[in-house]
Each structure stands twice: as C-alpha cells, then as structure tokens.
Amino acid sequence: MKCIVLSGATVPFTELIEAINPDVVSLLNKLGYTDIEVQYGHAKSAFNPHATVTGFSFDLNIRKKIEDADLVITHAGAGSILDSLDRSKNSIACRKILVVVNDKLMDNHQLELARKLDSMDCVYLVDSPKYLLYSLQKTANMTFTPLSPAVSIQDVINSELGIV
C-alpha cells in the first residue's frame, strides 16, 4: 500500500518531515505501507531517506499521487486537506487521512476545518507531530468516511442571469 506525506508549500512544516523517523517508518511498513513518499517542499534538509521512503519537493500532479495513496499524512492547510479527501462514496476502500497540526503556528484558524472533518470521521486529527506514531497505531483499524461530492452552482447562476 502507498502512503504520502504532505508538508505544505508555503510554510515549511519541518517537524512533520522529521516525524517520519525510523520508528514511524517501521510501523508504517508493518501496517503494510511499503511505498512511502514525502513531499518536503523547501525543507529537504529535514528529510530522512530510507529504503521504503522517497522524497520530492513539489509536483504539479500532486493530485494523481494522492489519488493512488491509501494513507495521507498531511499538514492542516485547507488546500491539501481538500486534495486529500476521498469523494468516492465508497466507504469500504476510503482513503485514510491523518491531519497533523503544526502546534508551533500561532494563527490556527485552519483548525476549525480539521476539527469539523475529524468529527465527521473524514480525517483523524493529530494534535502534534509528536503523536504521529501513537495516532498511526490508533487508526490502524479505524474506518474513514468519504466526504460528499461537490454540488454545482449552475442553477444559482442561471436564475441570476434569468435563464430558466
């Protein structure tokens, strides 16, 4: 199975990249994730290569990579969370998403979204990179819920334009 780690593009979340340490990697391997990819952005120095771990800075086709992943470990940015969420309506093979909070960031209005999605079982909220190992153990047998697909605003536009 495949696991992808998203550390964010604008603000480097080095603690999350560093949290993919040998202990976490061996647990991931044990859980069946033998293909682990880490998006380290501008923080390559924080990245530990390993036999089952590869890294990259940025990828324009990040969505394709996420699509192929069975587990996503991501920072709490709304864009990355949105890219990660499973919209397939198929709860049996729903992708697992762990949202790791950057507890060093003061302004955390992004938490509001992560908390909401956690309460809907769409993601699992990890309060700090310190708890990643524990959270992986805890979520090993947990099932996640896909998020409902997006609705078009075509009818809103039509009614405003006077098109029936």
Partner: peptide
C-alpha cells in the same frame, strides 16, 4: 452586475 459570493470551504464557523 449580479454578484455571487462563495465563502471558502475552510470556513466552518466564522
């Protein structure tokens, strides 16, 4: 002009 404003997906409570 008709104005349609869509609040961000990131905004849950405010």
């Amino acid at each position: 002009t008709k104005v349609i404003y869509v609040e961000s997906f990131a905004r849950v409570n405010t």
